[in-house]
Design a protein around this nucleic acid. Structure first.
Lengths: 194, 194
DNA sequence: GTCTATATCTGGATAGAC
DNA sequence: GTCTATCCAGATATAGAC
């Protein structure tokens, strides 16, 4: 790919992720990319188009790859615990992702169209199976998934709150989230224990 | 209070809550209030000032009143379960609140200044006490609070996702969250069980 | 393909009549 | 206190030279 195009995409990603669509300025993206504003339009025509390009890419990354869940041939509880740990580690590297995705979708629900519906389907089946074998507590799977989703994104959604409430700095917080990647397993197992 | 002022505040609340600061237009607020743009400036001087006014009010509501937790003289687990249920019911009536608050703070961390630090302090002490009496599982209280926080806000942060993934409509979703106000207790108890 | 200059429009804010 | 008309900064987008 054209190196200029790539610089633009990198810059756009950083700005859009941090500030959202409304809060981002084409000038800021151009500055960060070290090129001129006109080039943005030359390569991507409009702010809308550029944003969509970034969103598409990031949106896919927001959902865990199916491999994570399938390649792990254990029972449902193991699957979910592995997922939660890996997903937390993934979000540590992409801390702005939950805010960016959820906020964009909330203001613009049509962005949620291309969702990977097969993932929850698959998980529900796996859960049901283990339930019938007495390996999991019986509950509404939707409530379960919402909780796990919340437990995974919470530290990144509320980071400024936690940092302030705990009187912590960025380093402390990173340490806390690193530990969380491990600690979260025990909490999920507790919820799922029959 | 002046009825015009009140109309403005109501309109501003609705627009700001849904669209955030950057996405909101003074014109939209004026239209919704059924008055002229100039009046907004007459009463609140600037968009910034008007926004801060709304944020201050909503920010306080985002944190549970201490009474909820203190008046309930039971053990820590009961306290937290009662809180989670009541807080979920509160958020059902204020579904945009988590997005609005967390997004504003993320883009503008100084808004997180006036946090009620005594609430977590109090909760931690209550948790520690019950731990020593063998009533709660021992864990990092920060991890516990992050999880409960996440479990409470998750449905409202991810509503468009869940609606789409579950093939649900708004009514189904409301029903799901109503049930959640009850179901969440069992999950929290499981996590806290020694 | 990259730049400068400029067109065009939008949105926050103000002036001034009533 | 409420309105209309207007100003002006800032943002997207385009024209056109190189």
């Amino acid at each position: 790919m054209n190196p200029t195009e790539e610089k633009i995409l990198d810059a756009a990603e950083e700005i859009f992720m941090k500030k959202g669509y409304d809060g981002s300025r084409m000038q800021a993206i151009a500055d960060l990319a070290g090129i001129n504003k006109a080039m943005l339009h030359y390569y991507f025509r409009s702010k809308d188009k550029l944003f969509e390009r970034i969103f598409e890419t990031k949106f896919q990354g927001f959902f865990p790859t199916v491999e994570t869940l399938i390649n792990n041939e254990n029972n449902f509880t193991d699957k979910v615990c592995t997922f939660a740990e890996q997903y937390t580690r993934f979000l540590i590297k992409n801390p702005y992702l939950p805010h960016f995705i959820l906020n964009t979708i909330q203001k613009n629900p049509e962005f949620a169209k291309k969702l990977p519906h097969h993932i929850p389907q698959m998980l529900i089946m796996s859960y049901m199976e283990d339930c019938q074998n007495g390996l999991c507590k019986v509950m509404n799977p939707a409530q379960l998934f919402i909780s796990i989703f919340g437990m995974c994104i919470a530290p990144f959604m509320g980071k400024p709150l936690f940092v302030s409430l705990l009187g912590a700095n960025d380093e402390d917080f990173n340490e806390l989230v690193e530990m969380r990647a491990v600690d979260i397993e025990e909490q999920i197992r507790a919820i799922l224990k029959p």
